[in-house]
Amino acid sequence: MSKTAVLPRCPANPASLAFGPDRPWLAPLAGYSDLPFRLLCREYGAAVCVTEMVSAKGLVYHSPGTGELLASLPEDQPLVVQLFGAEADFLRRAVAMLREAGYGWFDLNMGCSVPKVLRQGAGAAMLGDMKNSLAVARAMLEEAGPGRVGFKLRLGLDDARPVLPDLALRLEDLGAGWLTLHPRTARQGFGGAADWQALARL
């Protein structure tokens, strides 16, 4: 089986991404950020769209349905593929497969607090192991190239275990293209008060 057997080809690979308050991004949202929704959001001004969260292991093992999450069109550009996983080798291989299929921009989810993701040591669970988080980030950046990978973060696992600004600065040093912050801890999930000032500090 070809390495890209389950992957649709990306129809374009823009050389840069738009950043700025007048160039809004569509954040990834599981169950919603499919191709039709992204195209609709682009009509309303989304400058960049991000796919739903895609499992790195799912890509490597050719899991059914993975290709549907990556379906795209020329009108659906620029497109960032958001991946999740906690093992550097799988993330490196996943990025290599995507690059071969024409994708050029990637994001690592280090902020998802859904239990089934946390049980894999992925998502926000990665904030509890900075050494591994940086190893995964380094593997992705080496495969994709500097500036072509972003990282979604939270404040930390809980109030007693913050990761900012240390993790953000280290990711910047490695060559991160952008950082995204959900200003809550993993323990908060999607409830409680968000620390909006943390965005300003970041």
Results as ranks from 00 to 15, higher is better:
residue 183 P to M: 11
residue 76 D to E: 11
residue 141 L to F: 07
residue 96 A to V: 06
residue 113 S to G: 04
residue 102 G to Y: 07
residue 176 A to C: 08
residue 33 S to P: 11
residue 159 D to P: 12
residue 127 L to F: 06
residue 186 A to V: 02
residue 94 A to H: 01
residue 12 A to W: 01
residue 69 L to D: 01
residue 33 S to E: 09
residue 42 R to M: 10
residue 124 A to C: 09
residue 7 L to E: 02
residue 124 A to K: 00
residue 63 S to D: 14
residue 196 W to N: 03
residue 148 R to T: 10
residue 2 S to M: 09
residue 181 L to P: 00
residue 98 L to K: 01
residue 160 A to R: 09
residue 46 A to C: 09
residue 104 G to L: 00
residue 105 W to G: 00
residue 91 L to E: 02
residue 137 A to L: 09
residue 200 A to I: 14
residue 191 G to M: 08
residue 146 P to Y: 10
residue 117 V to Q: 01
residue 12 A to D: 05
residue 162 P to V: 00
residue 34 D to W: 02
residue 151 F to H: 11
residue 177 G to I: 06
residue 184 R to E: 03
residue 99 R to W: 12
residue 155 L to I: 14
residue 16 S to N: 10
residue 100 E to H: 11
residue 184 R to L: 05
residue 75 E to W: 02
residue 88 A to Y: 02
residue 107 D to C: 05
residue 141 L to Q: 07
residue 63 S to M: 15
residue 54 V to R: 00
residue 132 N to M: 05
residue 157 L to M: 08
residue 67 G to E: 05
residue 21 P to R: 14
residue 137 A to K: 07
residue 70 L to N: 02
residue 143 E to F: 05
residue 142 E to K: 13
residue 79 L to V: 07
residue 84 F to M: 14
residue 180 T to H: 15
residue 93 R to K: 12
residue 200 A to G: 15
residue 130 M to S: 14
residue 87 E to C: 11
residue 134 L to E: 00
residue 155 L to M: 06
residue 144 A to K: 01
residue 178 W to I: 13
residue 166 D to G: 12
residue 1 M to V: 15
residue 87 E to N: 05
residue 193 A to P: 12
residue 173 D to V: 06
residue 125 A to F: 01
residue 92 R to G: 05
residue 53 M to N: 02
residue 134 L to D: 01
residue 190 F to A: 15
residue 92 R to I: 06
